[in-house]
């Protein structure tokens, strides 16, 4: 796992550990390809300003509960995950989008919620059943905003 994937990877289930162990043995020592996702079908062009609002909104995007970022006006940013500063330099839009859609594709132990997956979760609250955290439009908006965070 590279440092950039971030989150603490403790408590790995044994089956996964074995799989990872075998994968490491079988693999030449080089970085795995970074997952990418093509733009989602949307009804309007991406709006990075709306993406910014979503990232700042602790009930909508929830991002700043875990991440910090270059937003000095925002109080109480989290430190469970890497800073969003420079996210647009580190990752392409296709890579950022893939992380938002389902970060488990990068790291099976991640604490990052799957923003565009409505299935596979256990005991989904009734009010959220069958719904993704963000809509396709909102994923595109947040992707466009994160791509502007360059350093």
């Amino acid at each position: 796992m590279t440092g950039r994937t971030g989150h603490a990877g403790n408590g790995r289930p044994r089956g996964l550990a074995i799989a990872a162990f075998l994968a490491v043995l079988a693999m030449p020592a080089r970085a795995q390809p970074v997952p990418e996702a093509a733009p989602l079908p949307v009804s309007r062009p991406a709006d990075p300003e709306n993406g910014r609002r979503i990232v700042m909104d602790r009930r909508k995007g929830l991002c700043l509960l875990c991440h910090s970022g270059p937003f000095p006006e925002m109080r109480f940013q989290g430190d469970l995950a890497p800073s969003l500063a420079g996210a647009g330099s580190r990752w392409t839009p296709a890579q950022l989008r893939a992380r938002l859609i389902d970060s488990r594709l990068f790291n099976g132990e991640t604490i990052m919620p799957p923003y565009f997956r409505a299935e596979g979760q256990t005991r989904m609250a009734r009010a959220f059943a069958g719904r993704t955290i963000l809509t396709a439009e909102e994923i595109e908006d947040v992707t466009a905003f994160l791509a502007t965070l360059r350093e």
Binding site: A8, N10, I111, P113, G120, Q121, T122, R123, M124, I133
Partner: peptide
């Protein structure tokens, strides 16, 4: 559990 797909352990043991 849930839409955010988090376990107790991920916060309270690992973070």
């Amino acid at each position: 559990f849930g839409q955010l797909d988090l376990s107790c352990a991920q916060c309270h043991s690992q973070n």
